[in-house]
Every structure is written in C-alpha cells, then in structure tokens.
C-alpha cells in the first residue's frame, strides 16, 4: 500500500517543480479547474499503469508477499538465468513464435483481401449485409467461442465431423491432435478478426478520390489494373501502420484464445508465454519468474514496434509517431 502511494506522489511532485517559461504559479492558478478535471485520470494512470511498470523490478528480486516489492531482497539476474536455463521457457517461446507467425501470415493479409473484394460488390445493400455479418465474431468473447468451437468440432457430436463421416472419412480430433489444434487456432483467429480488421482498410478505400478511378477507366484500365495501381498504393500508409502494430503482437500471444481452447493433450505445442506466465505466477506463486517472463516479452514487443516504426519511416515516411 505504502509503496504505491509513494510512487504516485513522487511522480506528481516532479512535474510540479519542472521548469516553465511563464510564472508557473500563475499558469497553475489560471488552469485550476482544468487541473481538477485532469487529476483523477492522471492519478489513475500513475497508480494502475505506472505502478505495475515499477513493479517489474521484482523480476530482479526474490519477491515474497510479506516483504512487499520494496522489502524483498535484490538478486540481480538470478531469475533470468534460471528462466533462460529452463527447458520449459524455450519451449513456450518457440510455441509462441510458431503460433504467432502462422496467425500473422494468414491474419494480416486476410482483412486486406476481404476489404478489396467487398469493395467490388457494387450494390450497397448486400455489401452492407455482408459487412455487418462479418463483424459478428468480433463482439463475442473467446470464452464463448472456445465453448462454441469445442462443441462444433467435437469428434462425436460436432457437425463438421458428422459431415466428414458422412463422406466416408474418419472423425478428426481437432482439439486434441497437436497439428490440427494449431490449424484450428489459426483458422479461428482469422475467422474472428477478418471482418473487423477490414474496417480500417474499407475506410481508407472510401477516402480514395473517385476521379482517379474515372481517369483510369477512360484510359481503359480494367479492374485488376485499378486495384494494383490505385487502390493498393493508396492503402500503403494504412497497411504500414497496421503492419507495425501487428509486428509488436508477434510475441504478445493471444492469451484469451489459447487459454480457453487448449487442453493437456495439446500443451506440448500450444503452451505459450502468456499461459506459461499465468501458471507460473498465479498457480505456482513464482511471482519473480513469471514477472521476468512478462518483462522479457514486453521488452521484445516494444523493441519490435520501435524498430518497425523506424524502418517504416525510413522506407516510406509513414510511421505511427
């Protein structure tokens, strides 16, 4: 308790004393009502966003609850040494990269293709209907979808396997066979996000100047040429931004999806960093180790976003900041 208020208080003191070009007391007084509005929100960010960031220090400590974050003894890089030496860590790291990479190569282009195709539907009403239907899975949580797909893909009572058997095939244990399970993780992720992900591209397409298409039509350009030489280049900045954000997610696996769908039969391939972190931290109470795993993951994700952004800026001057 004490540590939290200290950290929050310390941070707000430091801005109060920061140098300003005009007399600070005057500016603060003029803005007193605005400051009043600003305080609860900023206090929230300091306590619930920055105190946990400060809490990452327990990755370098032998944390125990009674002594708290401040009181627990420093142990340097011991936890990281233990983490890097353990077989379990590298296995979940590998699983994370494999699943994320597969979800990225399918899930990233899918909404772009969907947006391009949807845009080719000329009549507005069917277009709107297709679009609205495609958003549905976005609103449904992975807990529900996990329950749904477990039933849907069941080898004995799921309709997919009934169809497979009706066609003379053998039932497939989608959720219990490691290879099939990875396939299901990839397919359901695309299924859930394709419609929602397309919004941003559709918005960008609708912003393209119609005269460009007219001019191209007059020049005799077909559908394919227009898509290649007008639509896609116009989408490039949006695609770049989405790409930067997606790259950061490569190590941030989809906890909600995997945690709700996996089971002991497929742990070997689907135990990922976040599920490992959860079990180590909140089930085995190895707080320091779990925090170290989380820190490792967050630092890599952060570095990748920064790197991708810098690269994008150098290539076509369209980063996120």
């Amino acid at each position: 308790m004490a540590t939290n208020t200290d950290a929050a208080g310390g941070a707000s003191d430091s801005i109060a004393t920061a140098p300003r070009k005009q007399p600070l007391s005057r500016r603060l007084w003029d803005n007193r009502y605005l400051i009043l509005l600003f305080l609860p929100g900023m206090l929230y960010f300091l306590v619930f966003r920055y105190v946990p960031i400060y809490g990452l220090v327990i990755a370098f400590k032998d944390y125990n609850f009674s002594e708290g974050i401040m009181g627990s003894p420093w142990i340097g890089l011991e936890v990281f040494k233990e983490m890097f030496a353990s077989h379990g860590f590298w296995e979940v790291f590998k699983n994370t990269l494999v699943i994320s990479a597969l979800q990225f190569v399918t899930g990233f282009p899918a909404p772009i293709i969907f947006a391009l195709l949807l845009n080719e539907i000329a009549s507005l009403r069917p277009k709107k209907i297709f679009q609205t239907i495609s958003y549905l899975p976005h609103f449904v949580s992975w807990v529900i979808l996990a329950g749904l797909f477990t039933q849907f893909l069941s080898p004995s009572t799921g309709p997919i396997n009934i169809l497979i058997q009706a066609m003379g095939g053998k039932p497939i244990y989608f959720m219990a066979d490691p290879q099939w399970f990875i396939f299901i993780l990839v397919v359901t992720e695309v299924w859930k996000s394709i419609g929602w992900g397309s919004i941003i591209y559709l918005a960008a397409i609708s912003g393209i100047d119609a005269e460009m298409y007219e001019a191209a039509s007059i020049d005799g350009a077909g559908r394919w040429v227009k898509m290649k030489s007008i639509t896609l280049p116009s989408l490039a900045p949006v695609i770049t931004i989405m790409l930067i954000l997606a790259i950061g997610k490569l190590v941030n696996d989809n906890f909600d999806q995997i945690f709700n769908m996996y089971n002991p039969a497929v742990y070997r391939v689907s135990d990922v960093m976040s599920t490992y972190l959860y079990r180590k931290g909140l089930e085995d109470m190895e707080y320091s180790l779990a925090t170290a795993v989380g820190l490792f993951k967050n630092v890599i994700a952060f570095a990748m976003v920064i790197g991708a952004n810098a690269l994008a800026k150098r290539i076509n001057d369209s980063g996120i900041w």
Binding site: F48, R49, I58, L277
Partner: peptide
C-alpha cells in the same frame, strides 16, 4: 506500447 503485465498488476 508497454505495460507491467499480469503479475505486477495482480500484486497491485
């Protein structure tokens, strides 16, 4: 772009 993550949040 950066957060403390699951465990520090839980401790808080």
């Amino acid at each position: 772009f950066f957060s403390g993550g699951m465990i520090p949040a839980y401790i808080l």
